[in-house]
C-alpha cells in the first residue's frame, strides 16, 4: 500500500464562513497504479491533489504515504516529503524562466543536498528519458510548450519519487502535443512509476487504469478499467 487516506476532511474558514471542501474521503492507491482523479469544479479535486501532494494538510483524518503519517508533519518535514516522494507536473509547467532546462531539472536535487557532479549526471539522465538530451542548455522561452512540459516531467522524475502527480498536464497544450505527453506518462507507468493525474477531460482519464470521480467533496465513483 503506497497511499492510504482514512476519512480525510478539509474545511476552509473564509472569514466566518466554513467551506467543506472534502467531507470524508477514504481510498487506497497501490504502487505502480495509474489513477485519474476527475470531477467538476468545486468537487474538491484540487484540494485532494494538494493534500496528496503534501502541499496542504487535512483538517481531520490520516494520510499515510509509504507508511509515514503525513497528517502529523510540520512544514519542513512536508517539504522533505515533497522533495523525496512526489514529482509535480503542473498545467502551466512552472519552470524557472531564467534557468536552463538542465538547471530546472537539477532544482529538486539542490534542495536535498546532492553534490553538484552527481546532480548534473542525474539531471541529464532525466532529460534523456523525456527525449530532451539535446535541449538541456536552452531556457524555457526557447522551447515549445510540449518541450517545456517534458522538462517539467524530467524535473518530477529526477529524484525518483514514489508518486508522479500531474495537475491537468495537457491543459495548456494542443491535442497532438497533449497526446505525446500522455504517451510519456504511459511509458513512465510501464517503467514502474505510480501516476496520479488530475483532469476534467475524459480522453485524458482514458489513459489511466482507474478513475476516481469526486462530487461535493466525496468519492462518487471509484472504478478500475477493463484490461488492466
Amino acid at each position: 500500500m503506497l497511499i492510504q487516506f482514512n476519512n480525510i476532511t478539509k474545511i476552509y474558514e473564509i472569514g466566518t464562513v466554513k467551506v467543506e471542501a472534502l467531507r470524508g474521503i477514504t481510498l487506497q492507491i497501490d504502487k505502480n497504479e495509474y489513477v485519474a482523479i476527475m470531477g467538476p469544479s468545486g468537487s474538491g479535486k484540487s484540494t485532494l491533489m494538494n493534500i496528496l501532494g503534501c502541499l496542504d494538510t487535512a483538517t481531520q483524518g490520516d494520510y499515510f504515504l509509504n507508511k509515514n503519517n503525513v497528517s502529523e508533519m510540520d512544514d519542513d518535514q512536508l517539504a522533505e516529503i515533497r522533495n523525496r516522494e512526489i514529482g509535480f507536473v503542473f498545467q502551466t509547467f512552472n519552470l524557472l524562466p531564467r534557468a536552463t532546462a538542465l538547471h530546472n531539472v537539477e532544482l529538486p536535487l539542490i534542495y536535498n543536498g546532492t553534490p553538484a557532479s552527481q546532480r548534473k549526471k542525474l539531471a541529464k539522465d532525466a532529460l534523456g528519458k523525456v527525449g530532451l538530451a539535446d535541449r538541456m542548455h536552452h531556457k524555457p522561452n526557447e522551447l515549445s510548450g510540449g518541450q517545456r512540459q517534458r522538462v517539467a516531467i524530467a524535473r518530477a522524475l529526477v529524484n525518483n519519487p514514489s508518486i508522479i502527480l500531474a495537475d491537468e498536464p495537457t491543459g495548456n497544450l494542443d491535442s497532438r502535443t497533449g497526446d505525446e505527453i500522455m504517451e510519456i506518462f504511459e511509458d513512465l507507468h510501464e517503467l514502474g512509476n505510480t501516476m496520479i493525474v488530475v483532469t476534467h477531460e475524459e480522453y485524458i482519464a482514458e489513459h489511466s487504469n482507474r478513475i476516481i470521480r469526486l462530487r461535493d467533496g466525496l468519492v462518487e465513483r471509484d472504478e478500475a478499467k477493463h484490461g488492466s
Binding site: D76, R82, L96
Partner: peptide
C-alpha cells in the same frame, strides 16, 4: 515552485 519541489 521551489517550495513544491522541496525547498524549506
Amino acid at each position: 515552485v521551489r517550495k513544491a519541489i522541496g525547498a524549506r
